[in-house]
Design a protein around this nucleic acid. Sequence first.
DNA 1: GTCTATAGAAGGATAGAC
DNA 2: GTCTATCCTTCTATAGAC
Lengths: 187, 187
Amino acid sequence: MTASPSPAKVPTRERILYATAELFRRQGYSGTGLKQVVAEADAPFGSLYHHFPGGKQELGEEVIQMAGAFFQALVTAIYDEEQETAASVRTVFTRAAETLEATGYEDACPISTVALEVASTDERLRRATAVVFAQWTDALTERLGNREKALAVIAALEGAFVLCRASRNTEPMLAAGEMAARLVTET
Amino acid sequence: MTASPSPAKVPTRERILYATAELFRRQGYSGTGLKQVVAEADAPFGSLYHHFPGGKQELGEEVIQMAGAFFQALVTAIYDEEQETAASVRTVFTRAAETLEATGYEDACPISTVALEVASTDERLRRATAVVFAQWTDALTERLGNREKALAVIAALEGAFVLCRASRNTEPMLAAGEMAARLVTET
DNA sequence: GTCTATAGAAGGATAGAC
DNA sequence: GTCTATCCTTCTATAGAC
């Protein structure tokens, strides 16, 4: 196996999805224009409507689903590599804090931003965000054996993202992680 | 004192501020157009730029400050009417859940939505949201006597708003409130 | 499937009469 | 301070050549 001199070309459709996800988490749904998307994805404008005939809404829905699955896998991997649940919860929060700091507080989960924007304005996208959160909740409930705690931990994580991005400081994420870990330890 | 037949006229400037706050929490910053603002405020378009020469950014900054002060007063009032801190924390979350349900999950705090949208795109507005969160944190730290807990409680509250609005269900808010109350009770 | 051009509406902002 | 008209840009979306 040699390093490929000309890397396998990423399909246009995927380039558009990744570029949109990237822009959504920095600018949100309304703040991201489709012309900006195709420029970032280095794709012609017509390709967007070829691959996503439903336009911005269909593209947004797929991005929400893709990002939701991606972050679930990320978190699940951490839960699986740690032995103890309290430790794994803490690790999720500290990793999030590290990522925020390393990326200039830009590389945050795109779901929350879009979820708040569309909750009262676009029923189809609202449902898509609801499904993602429900999947996260179910996965964590299984691991913690308690649905109420799972909901609280996810809420703390998402809320901490908001506070950290606004203040450009990881303190809220670490504080929320400490609380979440303690909560999980309790009987 | 008789009921006033012709109610005291609300100044144009304030009507614009209230209308903007209302639209921000439903549609966010990018999703709200200035033409829509003046239509909702029943004000002529020129008045907006007369009262807010800095345009959308200046208007947004004032709305963030106004909404921040309003919600701080709301929460502070609850903390003052209850005797015990754990009970007051729980009351804040249950009241939030009631309000969400009563308003069709629309009447949520506008700060988070705007905060996530502008965190990486508008430094002036980002700072405005950071100041609001810092004020909330300071006020709650004073009452709980612990900054780390205060941050975690606020994160849980904001994150629960996201989950509730997405799922159109108050369960996350009640679960987060339960956890926050327990956290406050701990030594 | 790729790409260009453009339609038609809405965006923020400004000028200037009143 | 109030209000109308308008400028220029950007938006989503479509048509149609290649």
